[in-house]
Design a protein around this nucleic acid. Sequence first.
DNA 1: AACAATTGAGAGCACTGCTCTTGACGTAGG
DNA 2: CCTACGTCAAGAGCAGTGCTCTCAATTGTT
Lengths: 248, 248
Amino acid sequence: MSDAAANAETAVRTPRERARAQTIADIVRLGRDHLATHGAAALSLRAVARDLGVVSSAVYRYVANRDELLTLLLVDAYNELGDAVDAAVNARPERDFAGRFTALGLAVRGWALREPARYGLLFGSPVPGYQAPASQTTAPGTRVIYRLVGILDAAYRAGDLTPPACAAVVPPPVPPALAADFETIRAELGLAVPDVLVANGVLAWTSLFGAVSFEVFGQYGSETFSARDELFEHHLAVLAGVAGFSSI
Amino acid sequence: MSDAAANAETAVRTPRERARAQTIADIVRLGRDHLATHGAAALSLRAVARDLGVVSSAVYRYVANRDELLTLLLVDAYNELGDAVDAAVNARPERDFAGRFTALGLAVRGWALREPARYGLLFGSPVPGYQAPASQTTAPGTRVIYRLVGILDAAYRAGDLTPPACAAVVPPPVPPALAADFETIRAELGLAVPDVLVANGVLAWTSLFGAVSFEVFGQYGSETFSARDELFEHHLAVLAGVAGFSSI
DNA sequence: AACAATTGAGAGCACTGCTCTTGACGTAGG
DNA sequence: CCTACGTCAAGAGCAGTGCTCTCAATTGTT
């Protein structure tokens, strides 16, 4: 058995290894296509094998089982979403924090609407019987939230992020147990933002994905909203206010 | 073929019809158990047949196919969630609008955490290849949002709901296309709430389910938050403010 | 009691994930 | 150069899935 970690790091030298890497890449590509068209639960190794022009048992030479292929596709999708978000955020000036927040939200929605099945794999109901291996998925899976946290923290340090002044969005103080969680997060990520803004930032995070999921998963009826772009942008503007941006 | 609609309405008289209704009820009950333990994608008619002590083809006498059973379970779950929400909301005084809003949110979260697989069927990634028949699912599927809308509208009419006063949560005015959507909704449901509050109400709705989905689907890591009750209640309080409640 | 509707059983088709054995091929080492 | 090893694809096979069809038996109705 070759060391998978080393394999990913070092350059592929022998023709065998090169061919093997190419085959695995093909399997992931075909799996991604199947995922996009038929959904995660309908992902079939046999179908991938057919498209690869090979008998079903042959793919087990390259991928241990269906779950491992699912993991590869999960990492693949997380990274594509992360790349899309990074590109959108980086396109805004470094100090335009509110602009970067909005760009992040729009990038998530754009990718989700473009890739509904893969978005569903990442943020929908868990695939029954499948447990994502944390060692491989946490890093790519936390790219978006880490990017969001980075924007909010930088905005706070620059004085662009202030706890909402109006009483409506300043609820009863954060209870001690929750404050302890926030303190851990702050320590681990080296943040400066106070409790209220952490709480509201988490809310903005979950709300962003809630709005996106409603659209992607068809929770709005088919005829309720025709101006969905405007609806989402409006929501994003309100969420920016919740997160602590004073002007959009 | 007996008229299904009439069958649901009229009393079951003949022993055959009674036995048939009982068998269908058993199938739904067993299907619900399988759904709760193994998830929607793993729902198997053969497994239900086994538990029913009958050969697989026999269940097709009662349920046309897997999709129809899924529809029955969908309606079943929607109604159970709706009942839970109704009970929680009705437990609060009729004029305690903010309390009813909070009760609704807590009821949704409570049911979702109790029934993660069924919640996933309702609000997670769509089951591939399955399209819910609107004629049967829209009515039960809209119970929660209609209840929420009812609370917000009643609160507004009573003067308990006011557009947030602080600038942060009053984003640029609702664009015309979106205002047209809102006007349609207002007309269909006979609402009085102005555009800004409709927009923020929709946001509160999606955000509520976003927060619940993050918990149920395990989007928070396993160790990020230990005080999840407090986190959700905090979010709910902020969302009440977003929706227009001035004091919690 | 005779008839007819309804039901359950069983076989069968096409599909799935996955395992094991067999034979062929290419590569690397002697 | 050439053998031996490692890798590979193929095929058969097992257990499961949804769904259809036929056939016999049960059961309610007339």
